[in-house]
């Protein structure tokens, strides 16, 4: 049995791709590759390499899992929907032995707990695909023999996954002038904040920021999605509880105090992201 870890194997596979093909807009080629795999109803793994390494797993042409070295993997407690009793017993047994299933039909969900369990598997996958579909990424040969490391999650049609990734990239473009995943953020100690109300996840971020860290580092340490962490960091910037060194109070100062910081051109809007993602041709949009 091979002692090489799956992530190392992915890196080796992706390194075999012609380096000259890693050009701007390559994410569009990866998206095109994903569409071809969907059309062929493929089952297996597509290794992707670039700023980070990762892989996208398919089952019968649908995305069932993805991971990237630059985004957190699903919580170790998450062991797939099979363990939650959300897939028929036969499918769960097949998934456990690593064989492709014919249907993998999901049962109706009866509770919020199970919905959040599904989300706990889906969010890291979408987060990873968002990271993997960057300009600097390139893919390697599709490996039909490789199967998802988790038992099973709800299969996601490729077009649906790509649409969500494009929406997220539009949100990240809005945030780019303010904060990026690797931008250091600090607590805004200079700001007088007599009273603020934050949610538990925001508090968890605040107490970990300290003298400076990045949204990605926070996401990795908390095991949360990088994208979701970016949104919460943006909210804390908007509340004036965090700042980006170099332009302190990037959001709050512009609203509250003269000369406290620059005012962003526009605030982050999910609706604008949807409009921008849908307004252009999804297949031809820049990466």
């Amino acid at each position: 049995m091979s002692q090489v870890t799956r992530r190392t194997r992915v890196r080796r596979l992706a390194d075999s791709v012609w380096p000259g093909r890693a050009v701007d807009g390559y994410a569009n080629l990866i998206a095109a590759r994903l569409r071809k795999l969907a059309a062929a109803e493929s089952t297996g793994m597509l290794p992707v390499s670039g700023r980070g390494d990762g892989a996208i797993f398919f089952r019968r042409g649908q995305v069932v899992y993805a991971e990237s070295s630059r985004t957190p993997s699903p919580d170790k407690r998450t062991v797939g929907l099979a363990a939650l009793g959300l897939v028929p017993e036969d499918d769960a047994r097949e998934a456990a032995v690593g064989a492709p299933t014919a249907g993998a039909q999901l049962l109706p969900l009866p509770s919020l707990r199970q919905l959040t369990s599904m989300l706990a598997l889906t969010e890291p996958t979408i987060d990873a695909i968002t990271e993997l579909l960057s300009n600097e990424s390139r893919y390697a040969k599709f490996r039909q023999s490789d199967l998802p490391p988790v038992a099973q999650m709800g299969p996601i049609p490729v077009e649906m996954a790509l649409a969500e990734v494009e929406r997220r990239r539009q949100v990240l473009r809005q945030l780019a002038p303010i904060v990026a995943a690797d931008t250091p953020v600090v607590r805004d100690a200079a700001r007088e904040s007599p009273s603020f109300q934050v949610s538990a996840p925001q508090w968890a971020l605040l107490i970990r920021v300290g003298d400076g860290t990045t949204p990605r580092a926070l996401a990795m340490s908390l095991g949360q999605s990088v994208f979701g962490t970016m949104i919460e960091i943006y909210r804390l910037l908007a509340l004036g509880l965090l700042a980006v060194p170099g332009h302190l109070s990037a959001l709050g100062g512009g609203l509250d105090g003269p000369g406290g910081g620059r005012r962003p051109g526009a605030v982050m809007s999910f609706m604008r992201a949807v409009a921008n993602a849908g307004g252009g041709d999804e297949r031809g949009s820049d990466a």
Partner: peptide, 29 residues
């Protein structure tokens, strides 16, 4: 993104005048 969960919304369809129901992850939209 979780089409299997659409059935969860079936009860709200019973509301008179129902047009659309959505479940949204508020942290990511």
């Amino acid at each position: 993104i979780l089409p299997e969960a659409d059935e969860l919304l079936a009860p709200v369809m019973a509301i008179d005048g129902f047009r659309l129901g959505c479940l949204i992850d508020g942290s990511t939209g």
